[in-house]
Design a protein around this nucleic acid. Structure first.
Lengths: 232, 232
DNA sequence: ACCTGAACACCGTTCAAGT
DNA sequence: ACCTGAACACCGTTCAAGT
């Protein structure tokens, strides 16, 4: 990793490259064009260089996208209020901050792997774990519960957000939902009894509420275990 | 979609192509080489044709991979026991069947998008919804709870299974876990208090249990709502 | 140390031509 | 209707050469 920070610290040309400049530009392109639209040639042109120059700062495209996704996640962690009253409330706020960040950068959703490569994914898991320890859960369950929550946050966010990426940045979410709702209506009620009965909910549903519904279900389950059956 | 079913029904050459033959071969290659390893040229060679021939049966690579993922999901649905005693038990069995199928075909995990394109993803959601209706939950919550469970199943499975895909089919999961555990141990306890305390759990953990832990948390939360606080 | 840009290997996709 | 295979456009990556 080159030690460049900010712009041209030691006095090189004003537009000298650096890892963060490249990653920032990559994020902008990813937001606009999606993962397939990000090209080393295009990125190089934006930065007034040749493709080869980028490889001095970044190993390959995989690493570049990983760095970009990591930064998105890092921004989310920074935005999430760090200490809060109850552990449950804090977990909820943290989860929503991550969801919102991924919602703004849909391409990143499929790249935040829970207990793995991204530095900020580790930070996320650690913060979740620290909060779980505060719930009064028996210590031997801390790990499994913390990872379950972490998996839920990143995994379900990705599921909810990914469809937009697939269609390309072109189609809006509303259009996409309307379109799927139409497909649901054409289904045979004999084969899809539930879905055909439920089209209205699909149309009116909200992604963010969707996310929090499951999250609350999960946290409710956690409470059931933490302090089993408090008096009514 | 050509009407070919099985092998050469009307009497063409014995090795005539068909959508399902192509998809089957694609699945085999995906299992062996991952999504990047699947190439139209390579696939064509396996089937003794040129790349162009495949395009008569399949629109493009995206569709091919989607068809392959859909088949994996379809197999999982067929394997899951269709009717079971309690709704909770049936939901659990269904979820595990999907997890196991994706575990056998890791590349498919990132392609099962919950309320969306794949035909069998719709079937999955419908089966979940039908089971949710049996839980005694108020009707206006059926949709959100069903989708929450659906999102959990596909999203968390993807999270748990995806890391293997990233590394390539080369590294085994055990090696991967051991490697991450080592990284955790090198972390600064001041920055990562929880993780450094928890390395042992990571080493001994089991992916499938991980999946069911969160699932049970979710279903527990569901029970809390379905029949709130039954007498102790 | 850092950048340039041509070149290599490879891939998805198309299409005129065949049967 | 279905297959063939050459060709096109494009991409990730490398590398000898520059400053």
């Amino acid at each position: 990793m080159p030690r460049t920070r900010g712009r041209a610290p030691t006095g090189g040309r004003a537009d000298a490259l650096s890892r963060e400049i490249i990653v920032d530009a990559a994020i902008a392109l990813l937001d606009e064009l999606g993962e397939r639209g990000l090209t080393f040639r295009l990125l190089a042109k934006q930065l007034n260089t040749g493709p080869g120059a980028l490889y001095w700062h970044v190993t390959n495209k995989d690493e570049l996208v990983a760095l970009a996704a990591d930064q998105v996640l890092g921004d989310a962690l920074a935005a999430a209020p760090h200490s809060e009253e109850g552990a449950g409330t804090a977990l909820r706020a943290l989860a929503i901050a991550v969801f919102d960040a991924l919602d703004r950068h849909p391409w990143a959703a499929s790249h935040v792997d829970a207990p793995a490569t991204l530095a900020n994914a580790l930070r996320l898991l650690d913060r979740i774990g620290t909060l779980v320890e505060r719930t009064g859960l028996p210590a031997e369950r801390h790990f499994e519960v913390a990872t379950a929550i972490s998996y839920y946050i990143t995994g379900v966010s990705a599921q909810i957000i990914a469809p937009c990426t697939t269609v390309g940045a072109s189609t809006s979410r509303d259009a996409f939902l309307a379109q799927t709702a139409e497909r649901w209506e054409e289904l045979d009620p004999a084969d899809y009894p539930f879905l055909t009965r439920t089209t209205a909910d699909l149309r009116s549903h909200n992604d963010r509420d969707q996310f929090t519904t499951g999250l609350d279900l999960l946290l409710d389950g956690l409470n059931t275990i933490a302090d089993p059956r408090p008096p009514a």
